[in-house]
Computed example of a mutant assay.
Amino acid sequence: MTANKNTQALSDLGVSIWLDDLSRERLNSGSLAKLIETHNVVGVTTNPTIFESALKDGEAYEAQLTELAAAGADAERAVFDITTADVREACDVFAGVYAATDGVDGRVSIEVDPRLARDAAGTIAQARELYKAVDRENVLIKIPATVEGIEAIAAVTAEGISVNVTLVFSLERYRAVINAFMLGLEKAHSDGIDISKIHSVASFFVSRVDAEIDKRLELAAEEGKPGTEKLKSQAAVANARLAHQIAVETFSSERWQLLAERGGRPQRLLLASTGTKDPNLSDTLYVTELAGTDVVNTMPEKTLLALADHGVVEKDTLSETYVEANKVLDGISAAGISYRDVVDTLETEGLEKFEVSWKGLLGTIDDGLKRNS
């Protein structure tokens, strides 16, 4: 089956296309397998919101809910068993991609309980539990990039578990994420673990940055501050491009070269939240303007299909963009908008949204257990 020309063009540039969605229905229908063949999809990311939606809308979970109810499982146990089952099956769907790319792609992510985001020890414990339960080499355990999460990322990586670091918004925190990854690899190597088997991505969130900064730019314009209009919807792309600069520089450092000589694989920049939230923007903006070698773009299906239909992918739009990107962030600062306050707000809101989704997921599962008992 021939791949779509637009997704193929993006893949040819060096972007790994991952789907930001998973459900039992998608697995059972063969939809996921088809996207691998037709749209160059080489991985999947999940989060509590995705699973909440899947469980709320799908009937494919009824049989397992009946089994879990008969076994006396509570909602917490049922969520764990259902989500790890979906991720395990998705890992098997991607087994061929995983083998063909030497473990770089063919990855499926599953997130620790978001209520543990401020609990390093709890995150580490559940990361181990999820890794053991999925029992597939190509699983990535998602850990949020909170201050406590940074500690957990280093510890889990040191044990040989591959990690998807999520909810990264700021350049400063991204540097800390890379450092935690390297610390984990250094410890793993000193403990005799084969670090060539440890992979990682850092999920740098994009569209939410524009949503928050554009809102503040509108207020700045109302206050009569000049130059705000030209900055609208520029921040997210600029921020992601500067993250790319950090990745390029850090994974060319002497410290990294030592790890590479020992078999280390670089942590890849993953562009997340790439569906546009402003209807006035191009629905492929955060794909076509962030295309480059050795990055991952995880897209909701709507964005993936938009790319396939009319996305124009012609050149690398990440490299050699750093000077202009810095000018954009400088302009935002000059307009009186605090970058630190923006990224702190986004992290807090991101965690809150996932906690709400998690509670909704537990409620949906609890209703399902009662219905099937």
Rank of each mutant, 00 (worst) to 15 (best):
V323H: 14
E301Q: 09
K315N: 11
L351G: 08
G360P: 05
L369F: 09
V312W: 10
L369I: 10
A335M: 08
L351S: 02
N326Y: 15
N326H: 15
T284V: 15
V328L: 03
A335L: 11
G331I: 06
G363D: 04
T288P: 04
D283L: 13
K277V: 15
G350E: 09
E289G: 10
L329E: 07
G292Y: 05
L351C: 11
D330S: 14
S333K: 14
A291I: 05
D316V: 00
Y286S: 03
V313T: 01
V296M: 06
A306E: 05
K302H: 07
D294A: 15
L369S: 00
G331D: 11
D316H: 04
L281K: 11
E289M: 10
P300E: 08
L362M: 12
T321P: 09
T298R: 01
S282R: 01
L281A: 06
T284Q: 05
T348M: 12
S338G: 07
D309Y: 07
A291D: 10
G350F: 11
S319E: 15
G368A: 08
S319P: 09
G275R: 00
E324K: 12
L361N: 00
M299H: 04
E314V: 08
E289K: 01
A325F: 08
A335I: 04
L305T: 06
G363A: 07
H310S: 05
G360N: 11
G311H: 01
G360S: 15
A306I: 03
D283I: 08
L369H: 02
T317F: 00
V343L: 07
D316Y: 06
E347Q: 15
P300F: 02
A291Y: 02
T288G: 11
G360Y: 02
L369Y: 01
K353L: 15
D330C: 14
Y322T: 09
V287C: 09
T303Q: 00
L362H: 03
K359Y: 07
L329S: 08
D278M: 10
P300V: 12
P279E: 12
D366E: 13
M299V: 11
I365V: 15
T303S: 07
G292C: 11
D316I: 02
E347C: 12
P300S: 04
K302I: 09
T276A: 09
I332P: 00
M299Y: 08
T348H: 15
A306Q: 06
D309A: 14
L369E: 05
